[in-house]
């Protein structure tokens, strides 16, 4: 770099010395002092800088920045709406889960209700059957008791008849005569006692 510029300066040197006696360019074509402090170059730099800045400002503020702002806003919007959609879907999923759980719980309670109802029905049926059976048993018992009572009464009568006959026979055998009424009363009192 240094050697190249040196060569260039060598070529330019004659030209510079001949044409322009610039205060900032030495006889060899190199810089005299600090090029930054050379007053005769400053207007040129300032002019082109101002032109550059104005052009750049117009390009950026009219074209580039609004465009980038639009893109960024669009992206932000897309992300926000996507997030909102995701939130929405999540809410829907939660609602669906809730509905499912509710249905499950409902089904469970219904099943329990049905079970309880069936149980109650069976109990009632069972109770009715039991009652019927009890009644039947009671009826049968009463009937049997009645039959036993009849049999017993029949037996008592037979005993009286046999005792009266026996007593009359005994009385007559012993040589007495007994009227029937007296024998009967005696037998009755003996059988009762």
């Amino acid at each position: 770099m240094a050697t190249e510029t040196a060569a260039a300066h060598g070529a330019e040197a004659a030209g510079h010395a001949a044409e322009s006696a610039s205060a900032c360019v030495g006889p060899s074509g190199g810089a005299v002092g600090l090029p930054q402090l050379c007053g005769e170059w400053m207007p040129n730099q300032i002019f082109w800088l101002v032109v550059t800045l104005i052009v750049l400002f117009l390009i950026l503020s009219r074209v580039a920045l609004p465009r980038i702002a639009t893109v960024l806003a669009a992206r932000k919007g897309a992300i926000t709406s996507d997030l909102a959609a995701a939130e929405d879907l999540k809410a829907k999923a939660v609602a669906a889960e809730d509905a499912y759980n509710k249905a499950l719980a409902d089904a469970r309670t219904e099943a329990q209700a049905i079970v309880a109802q069936n149980k109650a029905e069976m109990q009632a049926e069972l109770d009715a059957a039991m009652k019927e059976a009890d009644a039947e048993i009671a009826a049968k018992t009463a009937e049997s008791e009645k039959a036993i009572g009849e049999i017993r009464a029949g037996a008592m009568d037979s005993v009286k008849v046999v005792a009266t006959d026996t007593a009359e026979a005994l009385v007559s055998a012993l040589g007495g005569s007994a009227d029937a009424a007296t024998v009967k009363a005696a037998v009755d009192s003996r059988v009762k006692g």
Binding site: S20, Q36, W41, N44
Partner: peptide, 19 residues
């Protein structure tokens, strides 16, 4: 020539005026 890189040089011609 460490400072020569900072020299303002015209693209055409030899003189440097403001434009």
């Amino acid at each position: 020539h460490p400072m020569d890189q900072f020299m303002v040089e015209p693209l055409f011609g030899a003189d440097v005026s403001w434009y």
